[in-house]
Design a protein around this nucleic acid. Structure first.
Lengths: 132, 132
DNA sequence: CACTTTTTTTAGAATCATTATAAAGTAGAA
DNA sequence: TTCTACTTTATAATGATTCTAAAAAAAGTG
């Protein structure tokens, strides 16, 4: 199965629960944004299946560490994740509290001119806040 | 007093506690980053004065709404604020968990090419994650 | 000044996302 | 199968933030 490798790479054994989580996360054409709570609900509805929060947290964090999911840097009481792990950015609609993808090509090239001794750049993320 | 206007503009009357908060926030040459907890401790040490968390939260949020403080979009369990409200960006050192200012001039101009119907851009914020 | 009304501060409780825990379940190797 | 190590789970713990209601302070009024 195609998700087994993703799990193994993330240091996780392919269990029933983890495979279900993979299905919901990766078995779609479109990528999407979610919170842990969103994901839990999606699993309940879509698969008619309850997986404990602890398992969901563990799995999502393992994927995030390996780069199969991305955290979206935004101030909210919940943490937002993205199944789109390509280099891209986000609009955040303040009124509707909704995230929208901004492809890299929608944002001009970004040059970081300042250097910090002994550190290298891991990622550059742009958040564009929108209002009415 | 110079802070009275800031408070009034934010819809707050100038009380003893709020003026103390202003002192710690705005009475320095250098701008700085802080969490509510940082600020509370700074008030204790620097002014030898305890102000309840509720008051600090209220005041900081009022200033943030008026633009006298900025929230820094970053995923953390605590919310980070910045007394530097000029247009600028941030490095985030993942290893030391420290924020560093990135002046606008340190980042090339950013062009957002995508438009969203009926929405206007309120801010563009760049977060550059650093690792060793 | 009194006295009333409104606003503010405060400590502590409530909330809520996230993390930790420990017991019961499951997978994989021998 | 049987043993061992890893997983899942429900539930508790944690910790930042928000809420609350009572006491304190400030403003308004005669």
């Amino acid at each position: 199965m195609k998700y087994i490798e993703k799990l193994r790479n993330s240091g996780l054994r392919p269990t029933k629960q983890r495979l279900k989580i993979c299905e919901v996360l990766f078995d779609t054409e479109k990528t999407f944004h979610f919170t842990i709570n969103d994901l839990s609900n999606k699993i309940k509805k879509q698969l008619n299946n309850k997986i404990s929060l602890a398992t969901i947290y563990n799995t999502v964090h393992a994927f995030e560490k390996k780069g199969y999911l991305k955290q979206i840097p935004i101030n909210s009481n919940q943490t937002y994740f993205d199944t789109n792990v390509s280099d891209h950015h986000h609009f955040y609609d303040l009124n509707e509290q909704k995230l929208i993808d901004l492809e890299n090509s929608d944002v001009g090239p970004i040059k970081i001119l300042k250097k910090i001794e002994g550190k290298k750049i891991k990622s550059v993320e742009v958040l564009v806040k929108l209002e009415d």
